[in-house]
Design a protein around this nucleic acid. Structure first.
Length: 669
DNA sequence: AGCACGCCGACT
DNA sequence: GTCGGCGTGCTC
């Protein structure tokens, strides 16, 4: 007869603890059981976190017995270990952490059985000879896998250097060692190519796909195939990091710099952290792949926390495209207030007459992005989100890009009644119109969330471009990522300032990454491509570095700013959110929390900003305020510990204010 | 979160 | 007397 510690399936923060039960069965950590709990008569689900427990003396007479054991569903020991760690690190409950590792809902095994990639045909890639750089990368990674070294490789490879082939070889070696693999990608919809290649190499049986757009039934089945060992390769967006695989030998994070790896809902985890933690328990290896590593990751490589592998040569030896920065202020002075600079227009004509295709990039959807009154200056904003509304011509409506609500186009200013409404700021919809006017003989298409609402539509537009039926492709972020078209001779970045002017400490980093990536769409065939970047601030260091394909130069400058301003990687930004139905309670609690932290003598506690209202919050009848802590590196756990303590006291006092902790949040304004 | 206990007011 | 309002507090 023995004792185990359980986490009880219960949403309340009051029961976020381990509970001791008696059992005569031999239960492993990760087992799922049914137990009596509290006064209720219904049995509750429990998760075994610890076994061989010696019960605390004060529990004498209180301990009850495990009633049932779930025969179909269980976690591994590593999974509960990681869940417990997540609770500490992200300030979440055991239950929230455990749910990450379980299939969506019990009982979802109903419905028709369906395999997500049933009719996907594997792509048998002829295996070219690897380049010298690729061979070396594969050798280093393979060695680490074989020797069970806990290593994290930062694979920094220019666009077209063949990172995917390195992944494939590393996967093969890991499988040969009898261990399993997780491949993470920023957006599964744009990952068809990788999945096909995986199927071609390793067979459909070995692969399971995990992402949030699968049906419940599909997710349940894929989860089981991984848990049972039928499939040993999991591929997915960030939730794939929770794949229920035993003996993980390798985790690959492709395009590691992408912001989609940070979860924006509870639990607000960082994918790379969870991955590293899981590998720690398994002695596994991680590959972080990118042409433009995040500043945080590259600094870690410089400090030796990650091991850097560089691949600077393109696979087909075509030189990187030539990037030209165009000063739009000069265009304006010369009387051109259009969206095309004379240089871009000239190059477009040249490109088209040479039979080459063009990609135009603009990071703004819609027709006009700023609607205001000429006489009183009132700007049209979403009444709920407070964000500028965007005019969409085809829909003939103003749309809020945050909440998606539509509003009729005003004839007169709602504030002063003037008829002079100004439609400023061009978006992709208008660019498409202008392109069709300027180049009526060359078919063009637009690829953004308005023209392509699902994967199939995205694919359709891409196929049309790949086959040359479309000559000019206009698009948002969607065209920046992963497109591999041979015949693109020219890429135009219409307004590089859009991402540069976002009030976030990462705006320079994002801009550098974006420009580098879009530029990488040009000249993937035999001939060198050309890129034109239009900007009102062409002297910006991030743009200049991107134009020279000089990551190092960008990094040198950016890291100085981060240091000076005390931003990551030199600090962790801890955002603490206070949500309440009473605004004064949210403000008060936030203020008390900030004051309490300052008094608690934590290192550098003077770097606490706020409280202030959370600009990103849209709640019907509740209010949210936040404080922001620039937490010095290495003190993060201590701060989280204190915040959890503060919250626990509030919970015990029954205060009607909810506290959420977000470390290094996804968006910061 | 549930769920029972308990300490008050208005009913057959 | 006792039925039931929901405030209070505990769950191994």
């Amino acid at each position: 007869m023995g004792y185990v510690d359980l986490v009880i399936e219960n949403k309340s923060r009051h029961t976020d603890d381990l509970f001791t039960y008696q059992t005569d069965r031999d239960l492993a950590p990760g087992t799922i059981v049914k137990v009596p709990f509290g006064r209720g008569k219904a049995l509750k689900t429990g998760y075994v976190f610890r076994t061989g427990v010696t019960p605390a003396p004060e529990l004498a007479g209180k301990i009850r017995s495990v009633a049932e054991v779930d025969p179909d569903l269980s976690m591994t020991e590593e999974m509960v270990e990681t869940a417990a760690w997540m609770r500490q690190r992200y300030g979440i409950t055991y239950v929230d952490a455990v749910h990450c590792f379980l299939p969506p809902k019990r009982g979802s095994a109903r419905g028709k059985k369906k395999e997500p990639y049933k009719d996907a045909v594997g792509e048998i890639q002829e295996i070219h000879r690897l380049t010298e750089e690729q061979q070396q990368a594969v050798r280093r990674i393979g060695d680490a896998v074989r020797k069970r070294e806990r290593k994290i490789f930062l694979l920094k490879g220019v666009t077209g250097s063949g990172k995917t082939e390195v992944y494939m070889q590393a996967i093969r070696r890991t499988l040969e060692e009898g261990r399993s693999v997780i491949i993470l990608v920023p957006e599964i919809a744009l990952t068809d190519q990788i999945i096909r290649r995986l199927i071609g190499r390793f067979g459909k049986q070995e692969i399971a796909v995990l992402h949030s757009r699968l049906t419940l039934r599909e997710r349940y089945d894929e989860w089981n195939r991984l848990r049972s060992g039928e499939a040993r390769i999991a591929i997915g967006a960030r939730i794939g990091v929770f794949a229920p695989l035993p003996h993980i030998g390798l985790i690959i994070m492709d395009e590691e710099h992408e912001s989609t790896y940070k979860s924006d809902q509870t639990p607000k985890y960082e994918t790379v952290d969870v991955a590293a933690k899981r590998l720690m328990a398994e002695n596994g290896v991680m590959i972080l792949g990118s042409a433009t590593p995040s500043v945080v990751s590259y600094q870690r490589a410089k400090e030796g926390i990650y091991e850097l592998i560089e691949m600077n040569r393109r696979y087909n030896a075509t030189p990187l495209p030539e990037v030209e920065l165009v000063d739009m202020r000069e265009e304006l002075r010369a009387g051109n207030n259009g969206i095309f600079s004379s240089r871009l227009y000239q190059e477009m004509q040249r490109s088209l007459s040479a039979g080459k295709q063009i990609i135009l990039f603009l990071n703004r959807r819609g027709y006009a992005t700023f609607i205001s009154c000429r006489s009183c200056g009132e700007a049209m904003k979403c009444p709920e989100c407070g964000i500028s509304l965007v005019y969409h011509k085809r829909e003939n409506a103003l749309i809020c890009h945050y909440c998606g609500k539509k509003f009729p186009v005003p004839r007169v200013c709602p504030a002063c009644g003037s008829r002079e409404i100004r439609f400023a700021g061009r978006g992709t919809e208008q660019i498409e119109e202008l392109v069709k006017q300027a180049f009526p003989d060359h078919p063009s298409a637009r690829l953004d969330l308005d023209t392509a609402k699902n994967t199939r539509e995205i694919r359709k537009l891409m196929t049309s471009f790949a086959k040359g039926r479309t000559e000019i492709l206009i698009g948002t972020q969607l065209v920046a990522k992963g497109l591999d078209f041979r015949n693109v001779g020219l890429v135009g970045v219409l307004a590089a300032d859009v991402s540069l002017n976002i009030p976030d400490y990462r705006s320079a980093e994002r801009t550098f990454q974006l420009v580098t990536q879009v530029a990488g769409r040009a000249g993937r065939g035999e001939e060198q491509g050309r890129v034109i970047v239009q900007s009102y601030t062409p002297d910006n260091f991030a743009l200049r570095a991107a134009a020279r394909h000089d990551y190092e130069a960008f990094f040198r400058e950016e890291i100085l700013i981060r240091k000076l301003m005390q931003y990551p990687p030199f600090t962790d930004l801890i955002q603490v959110l206070f949500t309440s139905e009473e605004e004064s309670l949210a403000v008060d609690t936030a203020g008390r929390c900030a004051a309490w932290l300052e008094k608690a003598k934590l290192p550098n506690a003077r770097r606490i900003l706020g409280p202030k209202p959370d600009p990103n919050f849209k709640g019907q009848n509740s209010y949210r305020h936040d404080i922001l802590i620039k937490c010095p590196r290495g003190n993060r756990n201590q701060y989280i510990y204190y915040l959890r303590y503060f919250r626990q006291k509030l919970v015990e006092a029954g205060t009607a204010c909810q506290i959420t902790i977000d470390v290094n949040p996804y968006s910061m304004v």
